[in-house]
Design a protein around this nucleic acid. Structure first.
Lengths: 196, 196
DNA sequence: CTTTATTTTGAACGAATGCTCAAGTATAAT
DNA sequence: ATTATACTTGAGCATTCGTTCAAAATAAAG
């Protein structure tokens, strides 16, 4: 009973995510979103509440995607390092998506009026950190990593390089340079994983 | 002849820089700036042209400061690594300034309407990269670094970790954690500097 | 067909945005 | 004092912002 929905909610959130990801929260207006989703203001507000909530759902989708991809690449690799390298390469060399992390961007983009989004972003980054720890522990159990290695601190170290590389890739588009940096990064991680 | 200026231009730019740095370009309104600089719109526009130009001058000051600081810490250290570590520590542990890099933030914050600011930001980051190369070459000449070391690629590698660490520090405020990451980072740089 | 339920529409609101400019104020030279 | 010059002021412009809501549209149930 009642009129049937014209828009697929998941599709709409995906479109919104891509726009927010590229232009940031402040840099994206509701009118931009309306055009991108082909929805009128009333529909957007009926479906998503307001701009901040739509951004939250976009972040959720972003995190779900990256969590899924990470685990996918880990599952389909023989070693942690192989999986990590493939995962990062996939992100950096996909021309259709920005290379910079949307959560890091949120941390930078949001002004004090929306501090809650910053917090959410932080929590999600922590969540990803936990995912890395889990995979590192698995690798440790499999003998790929030194038994005395502190996987928590290693995960953090992986994360900051991952974040830095993605930010840098936003300005430095040369694939050769990015590839070399990725290689350096993996070497350093490997070294730390074996030591201590 | 004529009325004397009420505001010191350099001071005003410094105040603007601090506000922009914290809240980003889109997140800072001209009214916010007016309050922060204690200047009326007319004065701001007479002195700086428009919002984008004021942001440019803020970026210039930011870059000048960080360039100066880097060279200062390099000059007052016995080795490159010692200088680098002190420099980064000084940035991360200064409670009065955001830990995230203003240029990186610009890369994330600016929407397509102000693409030129993104470009400028990229150029400035490249400029800092050159500074690192210069100092690395000096260290190389001084025998601190392996003769075969590619200082250009090492500089890039230092930069991405520096950027990543500063972004991460924006959410992870624990000094112990940041300190450990800084230590890991320096170890990795040291390793790469000695090898090849 | 009528009713009821659900969704979409788009004009329009008040507030905020970047910015302008005529008027006002302070200085130095005449 | 008067004039010429430089700087500051703040009301207010046009535009855009996030958001609302009565009306229209579409579906199923009676």
């Amino acid at each position: 009973m009642g009129r049937q929905q014209r828009y697929d909610r998941t599709e709409s959130v995906e479109k919104a995510m891509n726009l927010f990801w590229r232009n940031g929260f402040s840099g994206t207006s509701m009118r931009d979103l309306g055009e991108c989703l082909d929805m009128r203001p009333g529909s957007i507000y009926a479906n998503f509440g307001n701009k901040e909530q739509l951004y939250r759902e976009s972040m959720d989708l972003y995190a779900a995607n990256i969590f899924h991809d990470f685990q996918y690449y880990m599952k389909n690799a023989d070693t942690f390092m192989e999986g990590l390298e493939n995962f990062i390469r996939h992100i950096l060399f996909d021309q259709d998506i920005p290379s910079v992390c949307m959560l890091t961007k949120t941390l930078a983009d949001i002004n004090p009026d929306h501090e809650a989004l910053k917090e959410k972003s932080g929590h999600m980054i922590s969540g990803f950190e936990c995912l890395i720890i889990t995979e590192l522990d698995r690798a440790k159990a499999g003998g790929q990593i030194n038994d005395n290695c502190d996987t928590i601190s290693l995960a953090r170290y992986i994360l900051i390089q991952f974040i830095g590389l993605r930010s840098y890739a936003e300005m430095q588009k040369s694939q050769a340079v990015i590839n070399e940096l990725l290689h350096d990064m993996c070497t350093a991680i490997q070294n730390k994983a074996q030591k201590n």
